[in-house]
């Protein structure tokens, strides 16, 4: 099974997923697993990427660091094309009795400080889920049946500003429990646990990629839009009108017809929009 997923992950298909980890040790196992290379950027955050559009950023520990990393990366990736990315937080957590190295998706993320909860929609089957509680200081007693960690709530809150909640997920790996308290955590184990979860991680990334690709394909704006925007002056409102017209042509299977308006690029923007509009109203009624 893993080979099938690996194939899709490292094949020609785009993998528009941002992985956010708090600690460099969490990145350590993911870099070779996902065939990532250092990503050159002026950002203060260490980043990795691959040619399939998969990206990894190391945020640092805690809620503020997580927020800053997501803001930084989303600004770096901003585009006008309506294309979005999935966001995945992979990190360690504590739980009262869960075995070390076991892992879950978060289905309810509660900020301990405010008591507010967020609920990442569970679209991905095949991976068990658990409640996650985000704390400001490491938790040692684990009173609830939940994974305790320090970033998930901010991650979800921040990443959903740039994507849709269905494409924002947290994956928590148990690093400490009542029998193995956090003070005794051997950091060398973190990359080992992550490596052992390779199949689940690749499954998760593959399924998230599939969802984003489908979303982005359906929202892809025809090339003509960009072409016209670069050639003629359009007001903000005209850009919106043109974008909607281009999408309507595409939905009606008339994308090829749009090409003809490029030759009108010397014309006035109003003329182009009204011509496109009149033509689609004629054709769309048939």
């Amino acid at each position: 099974m893993i080979k099938k997923f690996e194939k899709s992950l490292h094949g020609s298909e785009s993998t528009p997923v941002n992985i956010v980890v708090a600690h460099a040790l969490e990145a350590k196992a993911l870099i070779p697993m996902l065939h990532l290379q250092p990503f050159q950027t002026t950002s203060r955050f260490v980043q990795y990427g691959n040619s399939n559009n998969l990206h990894l950023i190391v945020s640092g520990i805690g809620r503020a660091a997580m927020e800053a990393a997501i803001t930084d990366l989303s600004q770096q990736q901003a585009n006008e094309e309506g294309q979005i990315r999935a966001w995945l937080n992979i990190g360690i957590a504590g739980h009262s009795k869960a075995p070390l190295g076991s892992a879950w998706l978060g289905n309810k993320i509660t900020c301990q400080e405010s008591g507010v909860s967020a609920y990442p929609p569970q679209l991905i089957a095949g991976i068990d889920s658990v409640a996650v509680i985000t704390v400001d200081e490491p938790e040692r007693t684990y009173p609830e049946d939940a994974a305790y960690e320090m970033e998930a709530f901010s991650f979800f809150e921040q990443a959903t500003k740039y994507s849709t909640a269905e494409l924002v997920q947290v994956f928590k790996i148990i690093s400490d429990n009542l029998e193995n308290p956090i003070e005794k955590l051997d950091f060398k184990n973190i990359p080992i646990w992550i490596r052992l979860l390779q199949e689940q991680i690749i499954l998760l990334i593959s399924k998230m990629s599939e969802l984003v690709r489908e979303h982005n394909d359906s929202h892809r704006i025809p090339r003509v839009y960009r072409e016209l925007c670069s050639r003629i002056h359009l007001t903000v409102n005209q850009k919106l009108q043109l974008k909607r017209l281009c999408l309507r042509y595409k939905a009606l299977g008339l994308e090829a017809d749009l090409e003809s308006v490029i030759s009108l690029a010397g014309s006035h923007s109003k003329q182009i929009i009204s011509q496109l509009s009149a033509q689609i109203d004629r054709v769309g009624k048939q």
Partner: peptide, 8 residues
């Protein structure tokens, strides 16, 4: 945005 019905 890709649905023909809503492009009419």
């Amino acid at each position: 945005p890709d649905e023909e019905l809503f492009a009419r």
